[in-house]
């Protein structure tokens, strides 16, 4: 694989394998119940046989593709667009939120305000669906192999490049100062409502990294059944 050194095979930790597999399955939109079952089968199999998970199941990305089609470019662009709009709404609401006064008072969003949200939108919406997605996919295609360029180097390089690009872009724009043109005028309550909705969308979108997985196989329990179990038998948590 490109960028990977063909080193001697390493035994892949089953926990690492399952984390990478679960990420790929969730990114492709497999329901959470099925994700847990697939991961539990891997855990149970490796526990029973002692086999290397990559040897038994293939690379996490390949094994995930046996269960569900990987996300297409259009899927990723759709997520990116939704997340981008939600991030704009959330960060666009900040000036209206910190400005005091009546909720019905009109607040203007200037060009400078809009430009100020760009770095936040890039960090919150664009990077997760581009850089993070690529790094996750790279890891899921090369479990047990050492990457020629570590993730932290790639991340650092991208962040530095973005900072330079942003600074350069800002330097090209004319300095409006307090005369920055107003792009939008709307009541405070509207900004804040849209911002809260944007925040909800932003944190609702799953990038395959939420929901921890249990370390051992077992049936999937709902939050309610776990709570009921905890209340009726507090020692059960220690056992499971």
């Amino acid at each position: 694989m490109e960028g990977m050194k063909p080193l001697e095979p390493m035994h892949v930790d089953v926990g690492v394998y399952c984390r990478l597999l679960a990420q790929q399955l969730r990114l492709a939109g497999l329901p959470e119940g099925r994700v847990v079952e697939v991961v539990h089968d891997v855990l149970d199999h490796v526990r029973a046989t002692g086999e290397d998970p990559v040897e038994a199941f293939g690379q996490p990305a390949d094994y995930a593709a046996r269960w569900v089609e990987p996300p297409t470019v259009w899927d990723v662009l759709r997520h990116l667009a939704v997340q981008g709009v939600a991030a704009c709404a959330m960060f666009g609401a900040m000036p209206a939120l910190v400005t005091g006064g009546s909720w019905t008072r009109d607040v203007g969003v200037t060009l400078d305000d809009a430009l100020g949200t760009v770095p936040f939108v890039v960090v919150v919406a664009v990077l997760p669906w581009t850089l993070d997605l690529w790094l996750t996919r790279r890891a899921a295609r090369s479990a047990g192999r050492r990457s020629a360029v570590p993730d932290w180097v790639v991340r650092g390089a991208v962040i530095v490049a973005l900072m330079v690009l942003f600074g350069w872009g800002m330097s090209l724009l004319p300095d409006h100062g307090p005369e920055s043109p107003t792009l939008l005028d709307a009541p405070r309550w509207l900004y804040v409502s849209v911002g809260v909705a944007g925040a909800c969308v932003l944190f609702r979108q799953d990038r395959g990294q939420s929901s921890g997985l249990p370390a051992a196989p077992g049936p999937r329990r709902s939050r309610w059944s776990r709570l009921r179990r905890f209340l009726t038998d507090p020692d059960s948590n220690a056992r499971s």
Binding site: E37, V42, E55, F57, G58
Partner: peptide, 11 residues
């Protein structure tokens, strides 16, 4: 046969 072949068939 590998686990990676049989489990998806079971699914």
């Amino acid at each position: 046969l590998k686990g990676g072949t049989v489990y998806p068939v079971l699914g």
